[in-house]
């Protein structure tokens, strides 16, 4: 799953550390999300979307061929 988290975070002028503190996760989690190494739970995806006042689909891009991975 691709995402625009890094782009949106930078638009808001936040560091990974700051975003991690806001969301209550580790900085490594933010880094892994941005690199696409880790897909968030629906709860974390909602938290991120709510914080940036965007829809989940606006931040996370679901790719059909990834289904089942």
């Amino acid at each position: 799953m691709k995402n625009r988290l890094e782009e949106i975070r930078k638009l808001k002028g936040l560091s990974q550390e700051e975003l991690a503190d806001i969301l209550g996760v580790s900085r490594q989690t933010i880094s892994s999300l941005e690199n696409g190494r880790y897909n968030p739970s629906i709860l974390l995806a909602f938290k991120i979307a709510r914080y940036f006042e965007r829809s989940i689909e606006d931040i996370f891009i679901y790719e059909e061929d990834e289904n089942g991975r």
Partner: peptide, 9 residues
């Protein structure tokens, strides 16, 4: 304590 709840961890 907060990080203990980190889903990735």
């Amino acid at each position: 304590k907060q990080l203990e709840k980190d889903e990735r961890l």
